[in-house]
Amino acid sequence: MNQNKDVTPRGPGTHHDEWIGGEPSVLVFDVNETLIDFESMNPLFERIFGDRRVMREWLGHLVMYSMTITLSGLYEGFFTLGQGLLRMVGDIHGVEVTDADIEEIRNAMLTMPAHPDVEAGLNQLKDAGFRMVTLTNSPPNPKGPSPLEHAGLAHFFERQFTIETTRAYKPAPQTYHLVAQALEVPPSTCFMVAAHVWDTVGAQSAGYTAGLLTRPGNAPLPVRSLPQPNLVAPDLPALATQLIERRRS
């Protein structure tokens, strides 16, 4: 498939030719994978587990168990949950995960670089006059720069929201409502930018529109009964171009 073409999926609940309730004016960005590069931790996982693909396995568990504890009415912080899951994955693979390994991965999670395309895309959107905020499952770092600050991206965003306020992980609807309520805008003016379909589905179910970035390991979910992203792009500059063109049309 030529990824430079508009590859927006079609299906029930998808409004490809017009926005729901009006044109989006607030862009709400996911952070992990969408803006910052989890693949940068692959060498650490290769050293610890002998296979860099274990990073994706661990990340899948992190997504699944964050949703599990929210659905169960429980809460634990993102980093504490991630550290516990590292030991669980170690048990699965018969690998001893040491305290030093966990500390190294914790530091890596706080210092991941931005994807190479992100700054250019954010500059396009800033110049076009969009309001931009972030909404992430990761907590702020009380002892130093946040991952977004370390990646050199914090200055692009009006506010940084985390799920610690609601103590419920995305895609719980209250996390998306939190942003709209705090900014005093209707959800229909908010546009979620994420690399995960579970995030775009959650945002659209809360009244947002959404765009999907097909980062490595991510793709649209072709199930017609589910909300489909309004826009799909391989990187942020391509998505920014689509958003700006739609605004001008």
Rank of each mutant, 00 (worst) to 15 (best):
Q3E: 12
Q3V: 10
D6V: 11
D6L: 09
V7T: 13
R10W: 08
G13D: 11
H15D: 15
E18F: 15
I20F: 15
G22R: 05
E23G: 06
E23M: 15
P24E: 07
D30N: 12
N32H: 01
T34H: 07
T34Y: 04
L35A: 06
I36G: 02
D37G: 02
M41H: 05
F45S: 05
D51V: 10
R52F: 08
R53T: 15
R53C: 04
R56T: 12
E57G: 02
W58A: 04
L59V: 09
L59A: 14
G60V: 03
G60W: 06
H61Q: 15
M67H: 12
T68Q: 15
T70E: 07
G73W: 08
E76P: 00
E76R: 14
F78A: 05
F79L: 06
G82W: 01
Q83I: 02
G84Q: 01
L85N: 00
R87L: 00
G90V: 02
E96V: 05
V97T: 04
D99Q: 11
A100K: 09
I102M: 13
I105S: 02
A108W: 01
L110M: 12
T111N: 11
M112H: 07
A114H: 10
P116V: 12
A120P: 05
L122N: 06
Q124G: 02
A128H: 01
F130L: 01
M132E: 05
V133A: 01
T134C: 09
T134W: 03
T136L: 05
S138D: 02
P140H: 09
N141I: 07
K143G: 08
A151N: 12
L153E: 12
L153Y: 09
A154P: 05
F156Y: 15
F156V: 07
R159L: 02
Q160L: 11
Q160D: 10
T162W: 07
I163L: 14
E164D: 15
E164Q: 14
T165K: 07
T165L: 00
T166Y: 05
T166R: 10
Y169P: 04
K170M: 01
A172I: 01
P173D: 11
Q174L: 10
Q174H: 08
T175Q: 04
T175W: 01
Y176T: 04
H177Q: 14
A182D: 12
L183H: 03
P186S: 09
P186Y: 01
T189H: 07
C190M: 02
F191T: 04
A194Q: 11
A194W: 11
H196G: 06
W198A: 03
G202F: 04
G202M: 03
G202Y: 05
A203N: 09
Q204V: 02
S205R: 15
Y208G: 04
Y208Q: 04
T209E: 14
G211W: 12
R215C: 08
G217I: 09
G217V: 04
R224F: 09
R224T: 14
P229N: 05
N230M: 03
L231W: 04
P234H: 12
L236K: 06
P237G: 09
A238Y: 03
L239Y: 08
A240W: 03
T241Y: 06
Q242F: 03
I244W: 08
I244F: 06
E245Y: 00
S249P: 00
